[in-house]
Write a protein that binds this DNA or RNA. Structure first.
Lengths: 223, 223
DNA sequence: TAATGTGAATCGTTTCACAGCG
DNA sequence: CGCTGTGAAACGATTCACATTA
């Protein structure tokens, strides 16, 4: 239904741009001052053409004949994509995975504040050592609304993931990252990103299978 | 270079088929006997057309006018995609994330045997309670080769991920799932799948940003 | 000259529309 | 008549090829 809300920049391009951005951060720390599209492509495994096209979605920024200035391109991407904006996040499900995320430093260093953790099991809330505020799961909706949390990370068992998502959405969450291996039904334009280890393993397994038994697939002996 | 190794079935379709498969497992347990493409689509958020096309890559299996038999379709997908095949896997990096994966039951229940864990820190190898055999990181290549491990899960800090991948590949690993937020360079046709929490958060953040400030993107005022 | 930026061509996936079958 | 299966059309992303510029 919301077709008018389009980002105008292809999602694959956006994903690559974010990889490029993170590489530029690293190159900046190593005091590299200039880099070309083919050098970036070599490191990241993308085609140089593709990188130039991606970058050009954000407007001109390179030096004809002399590549990109590392800092300038980094700031350009950051500015156009709004990467300087801080976002509040929470984690639901404080098993091993959830607590790992709760304390994941890379998030904090990149503008994400994890400011709440939730779990059904009240005992867990007392035994986990973290500086993040912890709450029982039934308070999700309330806390998300009061603290204006925008991003929710779901790390609960599969059977609880839809209910968790519903609570987050009731609280006005805007985006969800779902680690559970089942799809979630979204409402209100909430964006969902799935990080599904089991699914990825199955994809790998199937692709390996294809390689083992070649010549099987011919989609049905057509003309 | 290896263009002849193609799976003939689009990767997005494959991904959807695996979601469908897991839903069918669930429906089977609930004793649902028949389901149509539009019912599947409703639950999973895919278009019915798309589901029919995906399924048809594997050959005919539905009943014209009466949808699919749940068990038959499930077995059909499993058979064609080789999902019955057992795969051996290992985990490198035994922090909170790594140990979570080491003990992830869903993997075992779906034909993956996690048979080794690795970490640099020798102390960790002794303090973690798990039934999986643990080894110091310098033995990765050796153990992967000897035990014929096919899938490696990388859960180490970013700076160590490329070296970890190299060791896995030296041992003859065939697929890698990379949880670290940096891209890995692959060799020997090793397939890489990235599960990058930071990257996903950044994608969400950017997409939210687009929604906030609409009308900004026009790729350059062309005709 | 060496690299960017970009229309045009190509490629792959999704969607459409309908023929075919129970 | 309802729903599958599938060529054909539409769409979107990548790659190509080259004009452009320091």
């Amino acid at each position: 239904m919301p077709k008018h809300i389009k980002s105008e920049i292809p999602l694959p391009s956006l994903t690559r741009l974010l990889s490029i951005y993170r590489l530029l951060e690293q190159l900046g720390q190593e005091h590299v001052t200039s880099v070309s599209s083919s050098e970036l492509g070599k490191i990241l495994g993308f085609k140089p053409d593709s990188i130039r096209k991606d970058v050009s979605y954000l407007g001109e920024v390179g030096n004809f004949g002399a590549g990109y200035e590392v800092v300038r391109l980094k700031d350009h991407i950051s500015g156009k994509l709004g990467l300087d904006k801080k976002r509040k996040a929470c984690v639901v499900g404080l098993g091993r995975l959830g607590t790992a995320i709760l304390n994941y430093e890379d998030l904090r260093q990149n503008g994400f504040s994890v400011i709440a953790g939730f779990d059904n099991n009240i005992n867990k809330l007392e035994t986990i050592t973290t500086s993040v505020d912890l709450f029982p799961a039934h308070e999700i909706t309330d806390v998300v609304r009061k603290r204006e949390i925008e991003i929710g990370v779901i790390a609960v068992p599969a059977r609880a993931s839809q209910e968790t998502a519903d609570r987050l959405m009731d609280g006005g969450i805007r985006g969800i990252i779902n680690f559970s291996p089942v799809a979630i039904k979204a409402r209100n334009n909430v964006m969902i990103r799935n990080l599904d280890l089991l699914g990825e393993c199955m994809i790998l397994s199937t692709l390996l299978q294809f390689r083992e038994s070649n010549a099987e697939w011919q989609p049905g002996a057509e003309e």
